[in-house]
Design a binder for these strands. Structure first.
Lengths: 150, 150
DNA sequence: TATTGTTATACTCTATAACTATA
DNA sequence: TATAGTTATAGAGTATAACAATA
């Protein structure tokens, strides 16, 4: 029996013209692919981001990490709890300031990150596979103009 | 006294090259501006999206709305509870199928949406103010290629 | 049997405020 | 006094599973 209230084509109105709507859809797709790409590692963009920043800035303190990844200090605590529980990161006592922690990747953390990098590369490629090289550059530039943040 | 662990420039590593990172930043900016733009109305992109879709498809049922805005049916229940509590939407009993609700904007809902539209217009303009008209078109196209969804 | 809306529940992500230890 | 990290707590936002009414 055919449906009474026939669903099929719902009119999205002006939504598709809104940047925020586009971004949300794009992000849903990105997140889903990210998780698949990193599969067994139980990774999320946020955990991965923390690993990357710590690797690039060994010894940085939590407050700085928080600013870098745009999270509250308290939020970073739980990110690090997760990472430390998985033995990917260690919190060393700050040398000069004993209030702070000096964050570093463990050997395991470095190894995982190294393994992850090519997968993230693939992930990135998959996302933009419908774009030419120049389109990819353009997209990055345009997004950068909306929110400059390198 | 100057800071010991000098924060300032944290290296974000490869993050700025990742589409997901760019999208997240862009979305943070969009959301913040959206809330400011709609200010007094206590709006969110998600509530606004529901209003738009209901206006464009009066009488649609919750399941269809859920599919349209890519939320679970159960999630849509709470969205509609909020909207109905604010008297912006009504759930009418389905005519042909009494299991379903036929969703409609109330007069208040239509009015609010009408008032909101120019503000959303401004909001959108503000976001892309650093882009030329052609760049705006390009951006929409490129995002559409990554996640085609009109 | 299947679908619609709903509830109960839970999980993730995030922030605010207050605490402690250090400075 | 001020800062670093932490805890306790709470609020969005989301989903899954099970349920009653209806098909």
């Amino acid at each position: 029996m055919a449906k009474k209230t026939d669903s099929q084509q719902i009119d999205l109105g002006l939504l598709p013209t809104l940047l925020g709507y586009r971004l949300r859809l794009a992000q849903l797709a990105v997140f889903a692919d990210f998780v698949v790409s990193t599969g067994s590692a139980q990774m999320t963009p946020s955990l991965f981001g923390a690993l990357v920043v710590i690797e690039a800035n060994p010894g940085l303190k939590q407050t700085d990490l928080a600013r870098a990844v745009r999270l509250d200090r308290s939020t970073v605590v739980s990110v690090l709890d997760t990472l430390e529980k998985r033995q990917l990161v260690i919190r060393k006592r700050g040398l000069t300031d004993r209030r702070s922690n000096a964050l570093e990747l463990t050997a395991t953390g470095k190894q995982l990150l190294a393994e992850l990098l090519p997968r993230i590369e693939d992930h990135e490629q998959r996302l933009v596979q419908n774009l030419s090289a120049s389109e990819q550059t353009t997209l990055a530039q345009l997004l950068g103009k909306i929110f400059p943040a390198d």
